[in-house]
Simulated assay, not measured.
Amino acid sequence: MARWQPHAPERLLVAALELFEERGYENTTVVEITERAGLTKSTFFRHFPDKREVLFGGGAMTGLLREGIEAAPAGAGPLETVAHALDAIGRQAFTSERREFSARRSAVIATNPELREREALKELGLIAAMTDALKHRGVPDLTARVTAELGALAWKIAYERWRDTSGRADFAELARRALAEVRAASASC
């Protein structure tokens, strides 16, 4: 085995997803994942703290979200700022090439309580990141919190729609539509 292999995190993710689909999350070990990926156990732990984290990408999404909020135009309101961040995430993370993979990932997560719990914790982390980034832009605390919650709901709706492989709309378009729907629904409450 070569000392350095390119694209190790992606290879580990693909191997893990395949094994989780074939054997189940509980019946798959880190060693089996690394063997499938053609990598070593130490390489796995250089990229992920445990086998469940291989499906969650560390803090990559949180970083993209913060960057998108920071890059929003100065005069953008809170929800428009979140929309800007969702646009950026759509361009970088939710590409059409990843649609089928994301649907498979979601199916694996749905079958395991530990993974569903981790997904819920990730969502809370994204809400906290949005709240902090909005407050950093000068948005008042309560407004930042509510905007982040609405943004997270819109994200979740858009993601569910996007990963449906029969659809062809891009994530950014779906996220903006979901954000408008969430805004309209909250106004009618």
Rank of each mutant, 00 (worst) to 15 (best):
R104V: 10
T29S: 15
E117I: 00
I89Q: 11
E80Y: 02
G59V: 08
L124C: 08
T111P: 00
L64M: 12
F48V: 03
N27S: 13
E67M: 08
A88M: 08
V31G: 03
L134M: 02
V139L: 09
T131A: 13
A85M: 01
V82R: 06
E100Y: 08
L13P: 00
A128H: 08
T62L: 14
N112R: 13
R99C: 05
I109D: 13
T34C: 15
A72N: 09
T29I: 04
I33V: 15
R91Y: 01
G75T: 10
A129G: 11
T34W: 11
F94E: 08
V82M: 04
E114G: 09
T28A: 09
G90C: 07
T29P: 01
A71E: 15
A71W: 07
R66P: 07
V31Q: 11
L65G: 06
L124G: 13
E67G: 08
E117W: 07
R52S: 14
L39P: 11
A85H: 01
T28N: 05
V54Q: 00
K41S: 14
R36G: 07
D50E: 12
N27K: 14
G77W: 09
G75K: 10
G63F: 02
T111M: 13
A16S: 09
F56K: 00
A133V: 05
P73S: 09
A60F: 12
A85R: 00
T34Y: 11
N112E: 15
R99L: 06
R91D: 15
A93V: 06
P113I: 10
T40S: 15
E32H: 06
S42E: 13
A60Y: 12
E67Q: 15
T111C: 11
R137T: 01
A85T: 02
E26Y: 01
G90N: 07
E53H: 01
V31L: 10
S102Q: 11
H47M: 02
I109G: 10
G24W: 03
L134E: 02
A107Y: 02
M61W: 11
H84Q: 03
I109Q: 08
A103V: 03
L115E: 12
A107N: 05
E32V: 05
